[in-house]
Design a protein around this nucleic acid. Sequence first.
DNA 1: TTCCATGTTCCGCA
DNA 2: TTGCGGAACATGGA
Length: 276
Amino acid sequence: MPELPEVEVSRQYLEATSLHQEVAEVDVRDAYVLKDVDPDELDAALRGRKLIGGRRHGKLLFVQTDGDPWLLLHFGMSGFLEYHEDPEETSPYPRVLFRFRGGAHLDFDNRRKLGQVRLVEGPEDYVRAKGLGPDALSKGLDRQGFVESLLGRRGTLKSALMNQEILAGVGNEFSDEILFQRRLHPRTKVASLDEKALGAVFDTLRTTLNSAIDARMQPEQLPSRFLLRHRSEGASCPRCEGDVARVEVSGRGAYYCPSCQGDAPVGEASAADGPS
DNA sequence: TTCCATGTTCCGCA
DNA sequence: TTGCGGAACATGGA
């Protein structure tokens, strides 16, 4: 479950469970998720080390060790961390187990194997090399900076929000949530919004992500006004109780409420297939 | 059986 | 040249 809020909750989880224990072994169950490192190298780099802290940038979780390299965890579409005291227990699809002296272990679970585990020199270098934009919750990013990074874009607001080179951390689900909270149709074009409207999107983005983190992404603790809990076709809109609909935008499924967010994108003519 | 799924990357088109 | 959208990737669940 890996957009910014889930990764932040995972970072907190890692820090609450796994710090300051010596790594006894890195148990690689499926090397497909290892990138630019093989199982032996990963084990050699971490064995005898301790994890001393986690740092997040967008959807990336950097884990600092008491040695040179940092461990980088990227969850892909289906990853999470699970800590076990019992050496025999594991998460459902553990791809890499970080075993600590004493028997506990932290599982990097990644059912769909689109996640990544790698060793990197440090967060700053990696973020720069990947061309990632500022973290969506970074203090260095303000409303004006956000608005400026969007001005001149030709595509949809949804794909701009999901573009990690503009802003790191927002994915498909939270882009839908932000559009819902702002009552904007999923196909709304950036160019159809003025600076004031884009500034409002920034404010909503911040409050939405922070609320999700505060709720620790527990479905029952998320604000009841969130669409996230009703993200399926035919579900009932938490605001007007209308039917939630699905539409394809930039190759991704977008869920929205046609009644709250309009049947057609703002600034565009309503669907006209033309007479045949 | 078919469709869909919260990720990134690569390719072709305008 | 640059930005954008679509497909591909791996795998399992509805």
